[in-house]
Design a protein around this nucleic acid. Structure first.
Length: 421
RNA sequence: GGAGGGGUCGCAUAGUGGUCUAGUGCGGGCGCCUGCUAAGCGCUUUCCCUGGGUAACUGGGGACGAGGGUUCGAAUCCCUCCCCCUCCGCCA
């Protein structure tokens, strides 16, 4: 959420920022509601002050003047009316504010869509094959480690079952990534709930705007997490962190659930895009002045997974038009998959500034005695499992159809080669 | 799911309609005293909204788990919900 004071004082600055994103926003309506709100508030508070004073006097007198009580009753009615009006105006205002995206950082390249994103670096050479590399869905079926038919039998399209070495590989990747971030990058491991309350979704900015993408339990109003970013953001909701607490680095594994109302036919083959997938998520709470450099380090931490696995990848900076709703600046990491011949997005690392902190009311105290202020939040996949799974199968496939296990995964896999058992 | 108990300032507690501007103790901060330490003494201790001021600051309103209600006036009375504890039931 943006600071209403920023909109009030610099509407043009905000308008220009949204233009860079290719979005427009009802700023005039917002400013108008904000004025209404403050006008009503002023009247109500004046009346309340008056009532407080009179009530105090009444408390001291034994014989209450009936006329005065009648006056106060009338005043009370006006206050009740104003309260209702303020409540109405505020909820209208809040609903509009919650739907405004964040303002891109000044150094984000301006662009229209993904075409205008900028590749900032590439690492690793694409493997050379003496044969035609197969896509992972063929490898998975041949090796009997991915079962698409039974996935569909159990849960419908966009679900699959991992079996034998496939299931083991999934678990190996999760453990490897968690261990790497805990031991080498200084993150604290968190195991959060996979279902959260509505206000958590508002805090992370998945609600109200993106309700369509979420699974929701109507009976108890539980929301299934589309990413561990949601529970991690809300770890410190409504808290004031004492001086010296920041920065906080969290890493969490969760399953992720997304409705994905994609056009039929797109990304339907294989395990690239499902309704349920696994992800290891990196999350940081930082002081505002450090968040930019913390983003760079976050990207490096995520890249490190690619490096250890020995899979070629590139880092892409998103342009203003492709930036996510809450982000002020983002980098994607894409792994090369030689079978399906595609750059696969395995991570998206974002600095959200104080956007989520405002929504979730997460503050910190810079110094003892200092006033609390909003901290900055950053998130990034470290990494998303299915895509890494794909890249790994496709990059490490051998002429005989087996998969070589990368060095770092051997202790987790208990085997050097994935083959049909 | 059932029965009972509870949720008040960082922590612990008091407060059953106006004297609460939420008290007291502990912890924290500042000062005094002291050869030093301890003890003692004094002062101080939240957050949000809104107005005034460059600012230190200051006027007003609000917050006692959350939301409603009764009342001139609610921590206190009424209703709904949430969370925690104890016991019972059920269960991986």
């Amino acid at each position: 959420m943006l600071d209403i004071k920023l909109i009030r004082d610099n509407p043009d600055l905000v308008r220009q920022a949204f233009e860079k994103r290719g979005e427009s926003a009802p700023l005039d309506q917002i400013i108008n509601l904000d004025e209404q709100r403050r006008r009503l508030l002023h009247e109500m508070e004046t009346l309340r002050a008056q009532r407080n004073e009179v009530s105090k006097e009444l408390g001291k007198i034994a014989d209450k003047p009936p006329q005065l009580i009648a006056d106060m009753r009338k005043l009370g009615e006006r206050v009740t009316y104003l309260e209702a009006e303020i409540c109405r105006v505020e909820s209208e205002l809040e609903d509009l504010l919650l739907r405004l995206p964040n303002i891109p950082a000044a150094d984000v390249p301006v662009g229209k869509d993904a075409q205008d994103n900028i590749t900032v670096r590439s690492r690793g050479e694409p493997a050379q094959f003496s044969f035609t590399p197969l896509p992972h869905w063929e490898l998975g079926e041949k090796l009997d480690i991915i079962d698409f038919q039974r996935g569909a039998k159990l849960s419908g399209s966009r679900f699959y079952v991992l079996k034998g070495h496939g299931a083991r590989l999934q678990r190996a990747l999760i453990n490897f990534m968690l261990d790497l971030h805990i031991k080498e990058h200084g993150y604290t491991e968190i195991y959060p709930p996979f279902m959260v309350k509505r206000e958590c979704m508002v805090g992370s900015s998945n609600l109200p705007k993106f309700a369509d993408n979420l699974y929701h339990d109507e009976v108890d109003d539980f929301w299934f997490v589309p990413t561990a970013e949601v529970p991690l953001t809300n770890m410190h909701r409504d808290e004031i962190l004492p001086p010296g607490t920041l920065p906080l680095y969290y890493v969490a594994y969760t399953a992720c659930f997304r409705r994905e109302k994609m056009a039929a036919g797109k990304d339907t083959r294989g395990i690239k895009r499902g309704h349920q997938f696994d992800k290891v998520e990196l999350y940081k709470f930082t002081e505002p002045e450090n968040s930019d450099q913390e983003l760079d380090r976050l990207v490096k931490d995520a890249e490190d997974v690619c490096g250890h696995l020995g899979i070629p990848y590139r880092v892409v900076q998103l342009c203003t038009g492709d930036l996510g709703f809450a982000a002020i600046k983002s980098f994607d990491i894409e792994m090369w998959a030689p079978g399906c011949e595609e750059w696969l997005e395995v991570s998206s690392c974002s600095n959200c500034g104080d956007f989520q902190a405002r929504r979730a009311n997460i503050r910190y105290r810079p110094e003892p005695k200092a006033k609390p202020s909003f901290l900055n939040t950053l998130n990034g996949s470290g990494l998303a499992l299915p895509r890494v799974f794909i890249a790994l199968l496709e990059n490490y496939q051998q002429a005989d159809g087996t998969i070589k296990v990368p060095e770092v995964l051997k202790p987790y896999m208990g085997t050097e080669v994935i083959k049909r058992s």
